[in-house]
Computed example of a mutant assay.
Amino acid sequence: MSTVEIRVVGWCAWHQDAADDVRVIQVDEQGSGRGGVRYACGPCRKRHKLVPLVEQELPRRGPAATAVEACAGLLILMPGMFPLMTAGQREGRNCPWCNEPVDTETGVDLGERHLDRAQTVIHPRACRPCAHREATSSFAHHCRMCERCRQDEYCPDKMPLRRLAIETRS
């Protein structure tokens, strides 16, 4: 039986060319423009001391944060959504995806997000169905991009994503 090696080929934002073994380093949730995701190849990660997003520490959100709240701000990405969001969506009164009204009881706190280009801070909160959809999508994306997950090794980032997807199910 032969084994199949999976190659992740993508665009390295640091040396500006296609490369093997690219990993997500940064998500640009820009205030103007469409935002985006910046990937780096292995040599650029080493040369520039870049840490893949899935290996970065989760932000501390205080002792009252639930498991969902502790990781939602980092794990559910919203690149390029700021220009399309209403004031209610930016302030956490409406879901950023479906615009349904949410509050602290019904919504999932997506964490404080600093948008450097727009020179602003937003506090989005999602409805549970949208949070579930986005968490499930992020989980699937993580499993495709994470070298540990692709090799069926223990991954400390996989479980919080899965838990987030499970806890936000309707």
Rank of each mutant, 00 (worst) to 15 (best):
G80Q: 06
E29L: 05
P63D: 09
P43M: 05
Q26E: 15
N94A: 01
L50C: 09
R38N: 12
G80I: 03
V51T: 15
V68S: 13
P83T: 12
A65G: 08
A87G: 05
G42V: 01
C44L: 13
Y39Q: 04
T86H: 10
C71A: 12
T66H: 14
R34T: 07
V27S: 11
M78L: 15
Y39P: 13
R34W: 13
L75M: 14
C95W: 06
S32V: 02
Q26K: 13
M81H: 00
Q56E: 06
L53I: 03
G80R: 06
R90M: 12
V27G: 14
C95E: 08
N94M: 04
G35M: 02
L58C: 09
P63C: 00
V27F: 00
L77I: 15
G88R: 07
V68F: 01
V54A: 12
V51R: 07
Q56S: 01
A87Y: 00
A87R: 15
V37N: 08
V51W: 02
E29F: 02
R60V: 15
P43W: 03
L84A: 14
T86M: 06
L50S: 09
R34D: 14
I76R: 02
Q30E: 14
R61H: 05
Q26Y: 14
G33V: 00
M85I: 07
R90V: 05
L53C: 02
A67N: 03
L84V: 08
N94F: 10
E55S: 09
V27W: 02
E57R: 11
R38I: 06
G88N: 03
C71K: 01
K46G: 01
K49Q: 07
R90K: 14
R34G: 11
V37P: 07
L75G: 12
A87H: 03
L75C: 12
V37M: 02
P43L: 06
I76S: 01
E91S: 10
I76M: 04
L77K: 07
G35R: 03
P83H: 10
Q56C: 05
V51M: 10
P59L: 15
I76C: 10
E91K: 00
C44A: 10
L50T: 09
C71I: 09
P43A: 08
G92P: 11
Q26V: 05
A40H: 00
C44M: 11
Q56P: 02
C71S: 11
S32Y: 07
V37A: 03
G88P: 03
A65Q: 08
E57A: 15
Y39T: 05
Y39I: 15
G31P: 07
K46I: 08
L77R: 13
R47D: 03
E29Q: 08
A67Q: 03
R34L: 04
A65H: 09
H48Y: 10
G33T: 08
D28F: 14
L50P: 01
G33P: 04
R38D: 14
A65C: 12
R93F: 11
M81P: 04
H48P: 12
E57D: 14
M85A: 13
A40Y: 02
N94H: 12
M81A: 10
R60W: 05
G36T: 06
R38T: 05
P43H: 02
G36H: 11
P43C: 00
M81V: 15
E69K: 03
G36K: 07
M85C: 14
T86Q: 01
E69N: 00
E29K: 01
A87E: 15
